[in-house]
Amino acid sequence: MPSITIRNVPDAGHRALRARAALHGRSTEAEIRSILEQAAKPEGRLKLGSLLASIARDAGGMTEAEAEHLEAMRDQAPAEPMRFE
């Protein structure tokens, strides 16, 4: 797992992080990981798969016959593994 080093954190900021971590019952490092995770992946973010599924539902979805036809047209051959030669 990658690691990050943050230099020159002001004393007041470090104290605030330690206090926040104590409030949540975790280490300062775990608190910082949580803060970074929330910043990078906010709960309200748009997820592509969910968006596409909602568009399909709004469009009326597929009938069973359409799904069977699509499955019959699909390439059934196993995928070739990538080669890095």
Rank of each mutant, 00 (worst) to 15 (best):
I6S: 07
I6N: 04
I6Y: 07
R7M: 08
N8V: 09
V9P: 01
D11W: 06
A12G: 15
G13Y: 07
H14M: 10
R15H: 12
A16H: 10
A19F: 09
A21F: 08
A21K: 03
A21Y: 05
A22P: 06
A22H: 15
H24Q: 14
G25H: 01
G25V: 01
T28N: 02
T28E: 09
A30N: 11
E31V: 04
I32G: 05
R33Y: 01
S34W: 10
I35N: 04
I35T: 11
I35H: 07
L36I: 07
Q38S: 12
A39T: 04
A40P: 00
K41T: 08
P42I: 00
P42G: 04
E43P: 11
G44C: 00
R45L: 03
R45H: 03
R45E: 05
R45F: 00
R45I: 02
L46W: 03
K47Q: 15
S50H: 14
L51H: 09
L51F: 13
L52E: 08
L52D: 02
L52S: 06
A53T: 12
A53P: 01
I55D: 14
R57C: 10
A59V: 00
G61C: 01
G61S: 02
G61Q: 02
T63H: 00
E66A: 00
E68A: 09
H69W: 08
L70F: 08
E71S: 11
E71K: 11
A72W: 01
A72F: 00
A72V: 01
A72I: 00
M73H: 14
M73Q: 15
M73I: 08
R74K: 13
D75Q: 12
D75A: 10
D75R: 10
Q76Y: 06
A77G: 04
A79E: 10
M82Q: 05
M82A: 12
E85H: 15
